[in-house]
Each structure stands twice: as structure tokens, then as C-alpha cells.
Amino acid sequence: MFEARLLQGGLLKKVLDSIKDIITEGNFDCSPNGLSLQAMDSSHVSLIDILLESEGFEHYRCDRNIPMGLNITNLVKMIKCAGSEDIVTIKCEDKPDNVTFLFESKDNDKISDFEMKTMTIDDEHLLVPDQTYTAVVKMPSAEFQRLCRDMAAIGDTVNISVTKEGVRFSTTGDMGTANITVRPNPSGDQKEEERTEVQITEPVSAGFALRYLNSFTKATPLSPTVTLGMVPNLPIVVEYKIADMGHVRYYLAPKIED
């Protein structure tokens, strides 16, 4: 039996909105310590890693690990019926043929329940190793979203180069080139979440497809900051922390110079 009650149902909408352009179905792994999902897009160029820890739920019961295969597109349609202030409860049996979603309005004057069939999805066996990153950049998520959008107007690939001076985003296209350098501003009197911070043990520079980075920025509403992790010749990780709950992480394979 699995039952999880989330007071801020709007959070679930934001999480689903942050992945719906990348995957159409996914196996949610319900385990005693939380709800997680790991899935690659159809081209295997990007991977999504979601974790919603059990502590973030108002009530959480999970007797044993349950793979809950769901069609993301249908899930998004169904969750649209919930108000963003609704309390959402997710329930299913141990060998679930279907999952029930319960939406309770804030002042409890409207209760809706939806039942969705589960699907059997044979996952590739993914293993995302814990990685220490030689360059970690934490910056305002809205700024990163704006930057990726502006760069995509000019080129398809952005080269991200991190040194202790800061992060330089460069792109080239038919109309020309664009470079944006973001400098760390630790001294600034900005709030914590408006600062750009760079921790670096080794400079790193790599190229990534802007199309994917732009789809990752759909997670911007989840967190005021975004963290980029880079290691030479490895995929980049783009992480949006969900306060007191977990994270949505995206991994993107680099483009290799021919």
C-alpha cells in the first residue's frame, strides 16, 4: 500500500511541468524514503532525476518499493484539474493496476478523485554515479532561464566556460556570436538567492545544446536558484532544489568537438 499526502499540491504541478517536454512516460519509484523518478528522453541525450522525500509530505506510507509506471502526458492533464492550493493525495496498492489521485480544496468544499491506469515500463538500467564536480555555479534561476533563451536566439550550442573569475556563456550562429559573462558577487548586498557563486577546483569548458538547456529551465518556478555542476568530459548537471522536499536534476551529455 502506498499513500502520500502533499499539502502544497501546486508543487506537483510544477514538477510535472518541468519534465513534460522531455519524457512522455516514466516509472515513479515509490520507496519508504520518498518518491523518485529517473528517466532519459527518447534520444538518450538528457536524463531527469526527481526526488520528493517522504519528510516533505504531510502523511507518507509506503510498505514496500513499488514501481508506478505512468503516462506523463495524461498525468499532466489530470493534475490540471487540481487547484494549485489543493491538497493532493496519491494512493495505490502494492501491485498497482491503477493509481488514485485525490484533490481536496483548501477550504474543503470540493473533493475530486481521479483514477489512472498504470503502465509497465521497462526502464533501461540507469546508474547515475555520485559525482564531485570540479566546477559548481549557483546563480539565480530566472537569470539562467533568460540567458539560455537569449543565447538560443543566436546559436544552437552554448559553450560554458567556468574559471574562478566567473562563468562565460558563448554561442555562435549565422548572425554572429554572443558572449555573456556572469561574475560571482559574494560581497554584494543582494539576498542569498540573488547571488552568483562559483566554487572551482579546476577550470572547465564544454559545449551543450541550448534546446535541452531551455527545456530544463521549465523547472525555474520550483526554485529561486539553479546549480550547475561540471567536470571535464562528463555530462553537466542542472539542479533545481525543492525547498524541504528534494530536487529536480537534469543531466545533459556534452557536444564533442569533431
Binding site: S43, L127, T157, L234, Y251, A253, K255, I256
Partner: peptide
């Protein structure tokens, strides 16, 4: 431009 790698090389647990 460079060519796009996939994540299979890095994350597929074969």
C-alpha cells in the same frame, strides 16, 4: 558545432 554525445556512454549500467 560538434556532435552530440548520448548519456548511454556515461550512465547505462550494462
Amino acid at each position: 558545432e560538434g556532435s552530440q554525445e548520448t548519456l548511454d556512454f556515461y550512465f547505462l549500467d550494462v
